[in-house]
Design a protein around this nucleic acid. Structure first.
Lengths: 119, 119
DNA sequence: GGCACTTACTTACTTTTTGGAAGTTACTTG
DNA sequence: CAAGTAACTTCCAAAAAGTAAGTAAGTGCC
C-alpha cells in the first residue's frame, strides 16, 4: 500500500495557501490597478481591519509579491506596489474576476464576520 | 467627501472570499480531475483535518459549486463532483497552477499550522 | 511652543476558524 | 457477533481575524 496517492504539487499547495488567507485576493486585485497606500487600501477594501491589512502586506512583502516604498515627503507616505512576481498574478485575478462576473449573483451586502448564517 | 472610492465589485469580493477560506483552492483543484470521495480527498490533500474538509464541502455545495452524490451501494459511498459553476472555475485554478510553477520555489515541507515562523 | 489633525501602523483583547483526535452511524466480512 | 471501513460529527485547544484604542512622526494654525 502507498501512503499517498498522487500528492498535489507542493508549489500549487503554497500558491493556494497564499490565496487561502483572507483578503489576499482582494489586495492583489487592487494593486493590479497600480501602487496604493495603506490608507487607500483600507478605504477601497472597506471592511478589512487595519491589523489584518498590515499583516497581509507584510506577508506579501515577505513572499516577494509586493514591495513597500517609503517616500519621506515631508508628508511621509508609504506605497505598496507589485513586484514582477506579483504582476504575474494578474491572470489568476483576471480569471477569478471573469468567473465571478459570470457565476456569482449579488445577494445582500456583506457584513464584517465572513458570513452570518441565517439569523 | 465621498465615503467610498471606487468600491470593488461585490461579485469579486464574494469570489475572493470563497477562495480566501483555507483549502478551497486545493479541493477545487482535485475535483477538476474528476469526482472524488471524502476519504480520497482527505488522502490526496494530506494535511487537512476531516472536520474542515467536511465543512468546506458543505460550503461549496451550498454555493452550488459541487454536488454530493450518495451511492447506496450496498457499500455506501458518497462522491463529490463539480457542477457547471464549479467546472467553470478551472481557468482560475489553471492560471494559479501556472503561476505557482513559474514563481513558487519549493522550500521545506509544509507542516500543519499554516506556517511556522522561523523557530 | 501647544493643540488639533493626519498617516501608518501597533497593541490588547474578543470572536471565528482551523486543527487534532476521538467518537458515531451504517454497513461488510470473518 | 467482534472487527473493520467509510463518512462524518463532536469536543476541545490553537491560530487567525475582528474591534477598538494607542503610538510615533509630521503638518497647520495661533
Amino acid at each position: 500500500m502507498h501512503d499517498d496517492l498522487s500528492p498535489l504539487c507542493s508549489r500549487f499547495l503554497e500558491a493556494a495557501d497564499l490565496l487561502g488567507r483572507r483578503w489576499t485576493g482582494v489586495i492583489l486585485r487592487i494593486l493590479m490597478d497600480g501602487p496604493c497606500r495603506f490608507g487607500e487600501l483600507t478605504e477601497r477594501i472597506g471592511t478589512i481591519s487595519e491589523r489584518v491589512l498590515s499583516e497581509r502586506l507584510k506577508d506579501l512583502e515577505a513572499e516577494g509579491i509586493l514591495e513597500r516604498h517609503v517616500d519621506p515627503g515631508p508628508p511621509i507616505r508609504s506605497e505598496y506596489r507589485l513586484t514582477e512576481k506579483g504582476q504575474a498574478f494578474w491572470k489568476v485575478i483576471d480569471e477569478l474576476g471573469k468567473w465571478a462576473e459570470r457565476w456569482v449573483d449579488v445577494k445582500a451586502t456583506r457584513a464584517a464576520p465572513r458570513k452570518r448564517k441565517s439569523a
